[in-house]
Structure formats: C-alpha cells, structure tokens
C-alpha cells in the first residue's frame, strides 16, 4: 500500500521529467511532415491527416470493436505467456538439470521467426482467435521464461549464507531474499514480453484473422489507403507507449530504486 502511494506521489514529477521525450516525438512528427511534403499523400500521408483519421476511428464502431478485440487478444496471450513463462522459468531455475536441458529449447523458441509460427498456427488452428493468441503466447513465452530462470539461478550464495546465519524461516527467506531478487529479473522480462505481444498480435491478425486491427490493416493495404494504414499503426504504437511509459515505467522506477 505504502508502495502504491509512493508511486502515485512521484507520478507528477515523473510526467514533468518527460519533456525531453515529448520534444523528441514532436521532432519526429516534424520530419514526418517533411517526408509528406516531399513525397505526397499516397506514399506518406501528413501527420495531420493521420491523426485526423485516428480521431475518426473513435467514432467508428467497427474500428473501436476491432481495437478492443486486438487488445483483448494481446492481453490474453500476454497473460498466458506470463503465467506459463514465470512458473516454468522458476521451476527450471531451481533445478540445475532442468535449466541445462531447457537452454537449447529456449534458443530454438527465440530463434524461430514469429512469422513461421503464424503459418503453423494457421495450419493447426485455422483462421481466428486461437491462431492469433497462440502466436502471441509462443513469441512472448521465451522472454518471460528466460527472465524467471535467470532470476532464480543468480541468487548469490553469500546472501543465502547470511540469511541462514540469522535463522530465517522458509517463508521469511522467500519474502526477504528470493522474491525481491527474482522479481528484479522477472519484471523487466514481463515488460519486454508485453511489448512483444503488442507487435506480434497485429502481425498474426494481418495474416490469420478476418477481424482486429491487423485485419483492418490488411484491408487498408488492399485499398491502398495509406492514411488509414498509418493511423492504425499510430493507434498501436500510441497504446504501447502509453502502457510502457505512463503505466509501467513509474512502477519499474519504484521497484528498481535500489539498483545502481
């Protein structure tokens, strides 16, 4: 509770410190406008037209339901990856054999291009929700898994000895030593897993689904509607930026205040 209050208290200061980021985003938009003036509407629609299209989305029921669908899929996939990845990663970390055995499998999972998973998922599950969610899970899982495993394997023997010397109970050892240490590894892994889910969901939808933002993107492409396509991208990036910088970053800052 104290922790959440501290995050809320520091929040205005955190936002105020974001002027640099805002300036760089505006600079980027200015360059984008230069591109528009050089190459014209068809290649690169103006930022104004794009943001106008984004604003129109919110009054378009079909697009709003697409957005909700996409976000739901991304969240379901991410939460599943978070649960499986964390639990299996912790287990793998606690047993030396399991961690040695899981390493090559993780390498395969990380190395496998997500697009290949989309194709396989389409064959296995057909078009629709399952394929999209499966792809999201399989792409984010290894990131979370590795984070959890690393966290468990890197607890210092010296600190373990110290807690033993003070005779902490198993539960006290967990809350004072294991949990904070593992969390410091697993939390950043969750954040990258979430970013991954956001990207993968659109790609999977584009190929293997007839609804959601990805599918809307495919329609915009076939109609050569660059403005809508770009506006959809802006929506996805905007929501990810919001989630990462406004929601997760303040939590991360607080959680990791003890780090150098």
């Amino acid at each position: 509770m104290k922790f959440i209050l501290k995050i809320l208290k520091d929040f205005p200061w955190f936002l105020w410190s974001g002027w640099g980021a805002v300036a760089s985003i505006f600079l980027f938009i200015a360059l984008w406008d230069v591109g528009y003036q050089l190459y014209g509407e068809l290649v690169l629609p103006s930022p104004k037209a794009t943001f106008g299209a984004v604003a129109d989305f919110f009054s378009d029921e079909a697009i709003v339901s697409d957005m909700i669908l996409t976000i739901t899929r991304a969240m379901i996939g991410f939460v599943a990856a978070l649960i499986f990845g964390s639990v299996l990663g912790l287990l793998a970390g606690f047993f030396a054999t399991a961690s040695i055995m899981s390493r090559p499998i993780v390498t395969i999972l990380v190395g496998m291009p997500p697009i290949a998973w989309v194709v396989l998922a389409m064959i296995w599950f057909g078009m629709g929700d399952t394929s999209v969610i499966f792809t999201v899970v399989i792409a984010s899982f290894p990131i979370v898994f590795v984070g959890a495993m690393q966290g468990t394997r890197t607890i210092e023997g010296e600190l373990k000895e110290m807690v033993d010397s003070f005779g902490l109970s198993l539960w006290q050892k967990f809350t004072n030593l294991y949990f904070p240490h593992i969390f410091s590894y697993i939390f950043p892994a969750w954040v990258s897993g979430l970013g991954m889910s956001w990207k993968i969901v659109v790609m999977a939808e584009l190929l293997s689904s007839s609804d959601g933002i990805g599918a809307a993107l495919a329609v915009a492409r076939s109609q050569l509607d660059t403005t809508v396509a770009l506006a959809l991208v802006v929506v996805m990036i905007g929501s990810l930026l919001f989630l990462e910088y406004i929601v997760l970053e303040p939590i991360k800052k607080e959680v990791e205040a003890w780090r150098d």
């Binding site: 010296e158 600190l159 000895e161 110290m162 010397s165 003070f166 240490h181 003890w258």
Partner: peptide, 14 residues
Amino acid sequence: SAFAFQEPRLLPWK
C-alpha cells in the same frame, strides 16, 4: 548467535 561476515552482505533491495 549471530554472524558478521568479511563483506557486509546486505540485502540490496532493503
């Protein structure tokens, strides 16, 4: 009994 080590061995997150 209690133990003081050569290094401080403090919990960095506390």
